[in-house]
Amino acid sequence: MPHDHHDHDHLSPSGHPYQPDQDHTLTRWQAMEIAMRELLVEKEILTAAEITQTVEAMDRRSPADGAQVVARAWSDPEFKARLLADGSTTIGEMGFEAGAMKLIVVENTATTHNVVVCTLCSCYPRNLLGLPPDWYKQRAYRSRVVKTPRKVLSEFGLDLPDDVQVRVHDSTADMRYLVLPVRPAGTDDLDATALAELVNRDSMIGVAQATAPE
């Protein structure tokens, strides 16, 4: 939307309007970020290019990455077996990196539903899903999902039958969980690309199911 802005006084050197957050009065914490970044570059601890590339890589990562992994697991039983046995190594087959963390993939079935939280902080499989949603980091979710998971899931619009067991997985700094949702019915004819379209972020956190095909 480069041409629908009304205020031409705040253009960046490249001629694009600044994001709204850049138009507000500088905060102390933003000044700290700028100062730290410049000091790290001046001292040759980091390069400006490294920082830019890391932000760009962050922008490229999204739940679509995790969705590809789930779709492959739905369509390739041997891949799925490897994924459940060793998530960190197996996502590497698709070009995704687990980094230092251990990735554990937990499978939803007709009788078991898994949901993920980080009660202590905000640990999240960001290499497959991007940055965590705000609610994932809030007190309400972190506190309550381990105690009354069915109630919390119901607030997300997911009402599970009583005979489905709910397992809540608490992440740590070194260990992240990804939920493998149940493959929706009526998808036998879909290829991996079409299947991935059905896999939403919340279904891989475990607060939703995969989307039913149209």
């Binding site: 962050m58 922008d59 979710y141 919390v152 607030e155």
Partner: peptide
């Protein structure tokens, strides 16, 4: 805070600002 009393989950989502992503990048790097 796991298991402690808490209120309603707020599903509002803000867009990550550039300065926030840069903080994240500095941490990662």
């Amino acid at each position: 805070m796991g298991g402690q009393p808490a209120g309603q989950i707020d599903l509002d989502q803000h867009n990550f600002a550039l300065w926030e992503k840069r903080v994240d990048a500095l941490m990662v790097l």
